[in-house]
Amino acid sequence: MFRHVSEIETYFAQAGSLAGRIELATQAMAGFGLTSLVYDYTPVKYAHGGELITPSYLSMRNLPRDMASIWCDEGYYQIDPVQQLAFRSSAPFVWCYRSNGRTRLNRFLGDCHAPVIDYVHDSRITSGMTVPVHLPDGACATVTGICQDAADDFEREAGEVLAAFGLFAHVMHEALQRLFDDGQRRSRGVQLTPRERECVRFSADGLSAKAISARIDRAVPTVEMHLKSAARKLGARNRAQLIARAAHYGLLT
């Protein structure tokens, strides 16, 4: 088990690719008594309506093949209670879906989580620990280690290594984030075209459609079309709401 930041940094420096570093992280799970790994990163946690935004980067290792698609494409990510707890917490935590579990998760579970509860029981992945990594710009990553077919004393044993796992997770995230491309750094909540983003940014600076048209060398109706398209995608009813929602999704930078 790793005990120093420098050890973890040296460990991840062995691989120069994102996939390679994920593989190293997966191999390290056994040292914490874990079998599987989930890592996700989202630059914006919540949509303007309050629901969780599907992460821009998600990697699952040693888990059922259909799990990633179910979480991302069928809405399980939005109702995943571990993810919901992670976004509300700044500290690592142990979790358990079993009826005799005594973790924070057990007090949090409700009827809305039933599909996820059924899935994890069917897949025998009912126990694990999660580390939220909240970033200064509002982005968040979570590192989750899962123990398939966990023993009855998993909660106690996991508690003994939780601090070490938390340190590992934070350094792991730093090692991974350095290798993200532009797409992985961009929220999946709303997708604007480059021209739409440009027009919205100029609008946020106080420029009129006429002034924007002069700046980008396009006709005024073309600028208005881009702004209307952006507003439609963001569900904005006016310019103020358009700018506010664009800022929420990090589209003004």
Rank of each mutant, 00 (worst) to 15 (best):
H170L: 07
L234S: 01
F12M: 06
P132D: 04
E174F: 04
I243C: 11
C140N: 08
A211P: 01
G250H: 09
C199M: 11
D111C: 09
L176P: 08
T35Y: 04
V190G: 04
S123I: 01
L234K: 03
N100S: 10
I117V: 11
E74Y: 15
F87T: 14
C147L: 09
G75A: 05
G145D: 09
N238I: 15
M29Q: 09
G159Y: 12
K210H: 09
I53R: 14
Y119W: 04
N62C: 05
C112R: 15
D111E: 14
V133Q: 06
H4I: 10
L242A: 00
S213I: 03
T130I: 00
G33L: 03
E224K: 10
F2S: 04
F154L: 10
R218G: 00
A211T: 03
R188K: 10
R188L: 02
S203Y: 08
T130D: 08
S99T: 11
Q191A: 08
I146V: 15
M67L: 15
V94Q: 10
P43E: 12
P221R: 14
R215D: 02
C147W: 01
A164D: 12
G206M: 09
G128E: 09
A47F: 08
F2Y: 14
A139I: 10
A230T: 05
V94C: 04
Q27E: 12
V82Y: 07
T26H: 08
T26M: 01
R188A: 03
V133M: 05
A230F: 04
Q191R: 13
Q177M: 06
A164K: 13
S203K: 13
M1H: 06
A169T: 09
A13Q: 14
P81T: 07
T54E: 11
C96G: 12
T103Y: 06
L162A: 06
I8R: 08
T54K: 07
L234F: 05
A209P: 00
S36Q: 11
A244N: 13
V143R: 04
G16I: 08
E157Y: 04
S208A: 01
A141H: 05
T193L: 10
C199T: 12
S187N: 04
S90M: 03
S90P: 00
A28C: 01
R185S: 10
H173F: 14
R21L: 09
G49N: 12
V82N: 15
Y77H: 13
H248R: 12
G101D: 09
R3S: 15
F202I: 00
R124E: 11
L135W: 01
R104V: 10
S17F: 02
D217R: 13
L24M: 08
T103C: 10
Y249G: 06
V143S: 10
A86K: 01
F202H: 15
G183Q: 05
E155F: 12
F87P: 00
R197K: 12
Q184V: 06
K228C: 13
L179R: 11
I79Y: 07
L34K: 02
S69E: 14
E23I: 00
R98Y: 02
F154W: 05
S187H: 01
A91H: 06
L192S: 11
P132C: 03
V190H: 03
I212L: 00
A68R: 08
P221W: 05
L52D: 05
V131H: 02
F108I: 06
L34C: 07
L167I: 07
T193V: 01
C147G: 09
